[in-house]
Computed example of a mutant assay.
Amino acid sequence: MSGTARRKFRREGEERRRQDLIEATLDCVAEHGLEGATVRAIALRAGVTAGLIRHYFPGKEELLQAAYATIVGRMTEQAKAALSLADTDPRQRLVAFVKANLGPPVVDERVFALWAAFTGRANSDPALAAAHREGYLGFRDEVEALVAEVLAAEGRAATKAELRAHAIAVNGVIDGLWIEGCLAQEMFEPGELAGIGIAAVGTLLGFEIGMEAGR
């Protein structure tokens, strides 16, 4: 094996170990909360020593921050993945995005428990607060771009301030229905929350839009 291949193999191995530690952290937080996710508990879950964790992360706080960034990024990426499968029609892309955010695997009790645990600590942890803002703004930027596409296709000019307001409102609809679905998923029919969300988004943007637009 060449020196370059060995370095690549070692780097990939280190990335896998780092990700394994993040996954173990998420499991501990989901089961025991932030306080119960001690370095010792995480090490036991990952099958490593506490000393090895410190090789990858200076301390527990940095590990928690990486874990939170992972869960937020995963939620956003799962929704964005739906866009690659959607038609190029702007309305269909918006519908696909809303549907992806209001159904499994994004709507999930464990995902909500993790999100709630981390965000509940954001006010007292500047690093977690920064990660939360970054995740929120990244998601909102995605929504704003989709809204801009739809309005442009409708021949409707919109200022930057109007697009921002639309994105905040659409994000609010998605967030509210997502929380409802995570807390009581069994109370809703399959696709019900997505249908409500799509209709609400259409109303906010001033046109009728239905689930069939995303098919």
Results as ranks from 00 to 15, higher is better:
residue 65 Q to W: 08
residue 156 R to G: 06
residue 71 I to C: 10
residue 196 I to W: 06
residue 102 L to Y: 03
residue 64 L to N: 05
residue 205 L to R: 04
residue 131 A to F: 02
residue 148 A to T: 10
residue 167 A to C: 08
residue 176 G to T: 10
residue 44 L to A: 14
residue 87 D to A: 14
residue 116 A to I: 03
residue 193 L to W: 01
residue 30 A to W: 10
residue 52 L to M: 15
residue 203 T to P: 01
residue 134 E to V: 06
residue 62 E to S: 08
residue 65 Q to S: 10
residue 66 A to N: 01
residue 153 A to I: 09
residue 166 H to C: 11
residue 119 T to I: 13
residue 1 M to C: 09
residue 52 L to R: 15
residue 5 A to T: 12
residue 125 D to G: 06
residue 141 D to S: 14
residue 107 V to P: 01
residue 115 W to E: 11
residue 49 T to C: 08
residue 46 A to C: 08
residue 200 A to Q: 07
residue 6 R to H: 12
residue 75 M to E: 06
residue 55 H to Y: 11
residue 79 A to T: 09
residue 161 A to Q: 13
residue 34 L to C: 08
residue 188 F to V: 06
residue 81 A to D: 12
residue 181 G to F: 03
residue 101 N to K: 05
residue 49 T to E: 14
residue 152 A to Y: 09
residue 47 G to Y: 09
residue 81 A to F: 04
residue 74 R to Y: 04
residue 30 A to V: 07
residue 117 A to V: 09
residue 14 E to P: 00
residue 183 L to Q: 14
residue 191 G to I: 03
residue 212 E to K: 10
residue 10 R to K: 14
residue 68 Y to S: 05
residue 61 E to V: 12
residue 71 I to V: 15
residue 200 A to F: 02
residue 12 E to L: 10
residue 205 L to C: 07
residue 113 A to E: 07
residue 141 D to L: 10
residue 69 A to C: 11
residue 135 G to W: 01
residue 51 G to E: 11
residue 172 G to C: 10
residue 206 G to S: 03
residue 136 Y to I: 07
residue 75 M to C: 02
residue 118 F to H: 06
residue 206 G to A: 03
residue 163 L to N: 06
residue 119 T to C: 07
residue 69 A to H: 04
residue 47 G to W: 10
residue 96 A to M: 06
residue 196 I to P: 00
residue 194 A to L: 02
residue 86 A to D: 00
residue 139 F to Y: 13
residue 193 L to E: 01
residue 119 T to V: 14
residue 201 V to Q: 05
residue 42 I to G: 04
residue 210 G to C: 07
residue 175 D to H: 15
residue 80 K to R: 15
residue 44 L to S: 14
residue 6 R to P: 00
residue 42 I to F: 08
residue 14 E to Y: 13
residue 164 R to S: 15
residue 208 E to R: 11
residue 123 N to V: 11
residue 35 E to M: 08
residue 208 E to K: 11
residue 127 A to H: 07
residue 28 C to N: 03
residue 88 T to I: 04
residue 170 V to M: 08
residue 211 M to T: 04
residue 145 A to N: 12
residue 122 A to Q: 06
residue 174 I to Y: 01
residue 137 L to Y: 13
residue 8 K to A: 15
residue 169 A to S: 15
residue 73 G to E: 09
residue 147 V to P: 00
residue 193 L to T: 03
residue 79 A to W: 01
residue 96 A to N: 02
residue 119 T to R: 13
residue 5 A to R: 15
residue 43 A to Q: 07
residue 205 L to W: 04
residue 201 V to N: 03
residue 214 G to E: 05
residue 115 W to R: 11
residue 51 G to Y: 09
